[in-house]
């Protein structure tokens, strides 16, 4: 949309370099431009284009969940396949991921199910902050509701979620605080309780400040 939202998300996740600014998690600085350090700091990233930036389609559900977690699920460089399988199965059942088994290749799953696999990966990594870029785009209504439900469970358990969305009802319905971006800047911070679609649109379009 040109507002700089995806760019901001990618910088927080360590995917890209920023010219200025710092990322802090729990008051500790996260080294920039390094997905590995972002993950270590507890940041999980659900990219806008999950097929391009999120999943390795040729790998299985379990292997995709394992990808950022293998350092913990291996010993001396050798993957602890039993532990990996157990963890993957646990998250598959916890998130109700519709797959015949964890060895199924993610390329065969639906969009919503694939999104849940990305989410499972970060839950397994014990992420404290989830950066979700358009998490429900291209996902059917049923799976959307499930993802909202999961997001609520996560925040109830103390995780933070930074959601980027163009879907105004979704923004108003899910958020506690809303930041409106325009031309690469945050134009306004709104309390979700008092916010309306008109108000958000006005700020986004530059009709009011």
């Amino acid at each position: 949309m040109g507002a700089g939202r995806t760019e901001l998300a990618r910088i927080i996740a360590g995917a890209d370099r920023s010219s200025t600014g710092r990322v802090l998690v729990e008051s500790r600085r996260v080294p920039p431009n390094s997905p590995r350090h972002a993950i270590r700091a507890g940041i999980g990233f659900l990219p806008e284009d999950r097929k391009r930036d999120g999943l390795v389609l040729t790998l299985s559900v379990g292997e995709n969940i394992g990808l950022p977690n293998l350092t913990r699920w291996s010993r001396g460089g050798i993957v602890a396949r039993g532990a990996e399988r157990e963890e993957a199965e646990r998250w598959v059942s916890e998130l109700h991921i519709k797959t015949p088994h964890v060895a199924e290749r993610v390329v065969r799953l639906s969009g919503g199910t694939q999104q849940k696999v990305v989410l499972a990966r970060w839950l397994a990594a014990r992420a404290k902050l989830l950066v979700m870029d358009e998490p429900t785009r291209g996902i059917d209504v049923g799976a959307k509701a499930e993802i909202y439900e999961l997001m609520n469970q996560l925040t109830d358990r103390g995780a933070g979620i930074l959601m980027i969305s163009s879907d105004l009802p979704e923004v108003l319905g899910m958020s506690d605080r809303i930041y409106v971006m325009r031309g690469g800047r945050i134009e306004a911070e709104l309390d979700a309780r008092g916010a309306t679609e008109e108000r958000v649109l006005q700020v986004a379009l530059g009709l009011a400040s």
Partner: peptide, 15 residues
């Protein structure tokens, strides 16, 4: 396998 299947996704997984 991850790098060959999707290098960017593998990088974003901290590899």
């Amino acid at each position: 396998y991850g790098i060959g299947g999707n290098e960017e996704a593998t990088r974003l997984s901290g590899v």
